[in-house]
Amino acid sequence: MFFLGLFPQLALKILTVALLIILMTYLIRKSIKLFFDKTSILDEKREETLMHFANQVTKVLGLVFFFIYVLSHFFDLTKFVTGSAVMAGALALIFQHIIRDYIMGLTYLFERQIHHGDYVIINGNREGKIEEISMRHMKIRQYDGYLYTVSHSNITELQNGNRGMRRVNESLVLNYRQNPDDAFKVIEEVAQTCNEKYEEYLLKDENGVPVENFIFNQITELNVDFRGHRYSISGLVKETDFAVASKKVRYELAIAAYKNDLMMAQSEGLEANKDCNPQVSL
Results as ranks from 00 to 15, higher is better:
residue 54 A to P: 02
residue 125 N to C: 12
residue 54 A to I: 09
residue 129 K to N: 09
residue 127 E to L: 03
residue 44 E to C: 06
residue 157 E to W: 07
residue 115 H to L: 09
residue 218 Q to V: 06
residue 60 V to W: 10
residue 131 E to W: 03
residue 117 G to I: 01
residue 34 L to F: 14
residue 282 L to N: 05
residue 62 G to W: 02
residue 71 L to G: 06
residue 62 G to R: 00
residue 245 A to Y: 00
residue 212 E to G: 03
residue 214 F to S: 01
residue 137 H to Y: 15
residue 202 L to M: 05
residue 199 E to P: 02
residue 218 Q to G: 05
residue 163 R to Y: 02
residue 62 G to C: 02
residue 92 A to D: 09
residue 109 L to F: 04
residue 137 H to R: 13
residue 68 I to V: 15
residue 262 L to T: 01
residue 155 I to N: 00
residue 144 D to I: 05
residue 15 L to D: 08
residue 154 N to P: 07
residue 24 M to A: 14
residue 57 V to R: 01
residue 205 D to C: 03
residue 122 I to M: 02
residue 250 R to P: 02
residue 33 K to G: 04
residue 103 I to M: 11
residue 69 Y to H: 06
residue 27 L to E: 14
residue 48 E to I: 07
residue 212 E to F: 06
residue 158 L to S: 07
residue 198 Y to G: 02
residue 188 E to I: 03
residue 20 L to D: 09
residue 274 K to T: 10
residue 118 D to Q: 05
residue 171 S to G: 07
residue 156 T to M: 10
residue 132 E to R: 10
residue 88 A to W: 07
residue 86 V to L: 11
residue 1 M to N: 11
residue 181 D to H: 13
residue 120 V to A: 03
residue 33 K to M: 13
residue 273 N to R: 13
residue 110 F to R: 08
residue 255 I to F: 06
residue 161 G to I: 00
residue 222 L to A: 12
residue 69 Y to M: 00
residue 182 D to A: 12
residue 65 F to R: 02
residue 30 K to M: 11
residue 157 E to G: 08
residue 267 S to R: 01
residue 79 K to N: 07
residue 223 N to S: 10
residue 157 E to I: 10
residue 181 D to V: 15
residue 244 V to D: 06
residue 115 H to D: 11
residue 200 E to A: 12
residue 17 V to K: 09
residue 71 L to V: 07
residue 50 L to G: 02
residue 151 S to Y: 15
residue 282 L to F: 09
residue 277 N to E: 09
residue 78 T to V: 13
residue 35 F to C: 06
residue 109 L to Q: 03
residue 164 G to F: 01
residue 28 I to R: 03
residue 194 C to R: 01
residue 146 Y to N: 12
residue 182 D to S: 10
residue 3 F to R: 14
residue 24 M to C: 15
residue 104 M to A: 12
residue 217 N to V: 05
residue 189 E to G: 13
residue 144 D to A: 05
residue 247 K to F: 13
residue 261 D to Y: 09
residue 212 E to H: 11
residue 163 R to P: 00
residue 179 N to Y: 09
residue 143 Y to R: 12
residue 184 F to C: 05
residue 51 M to I: 14
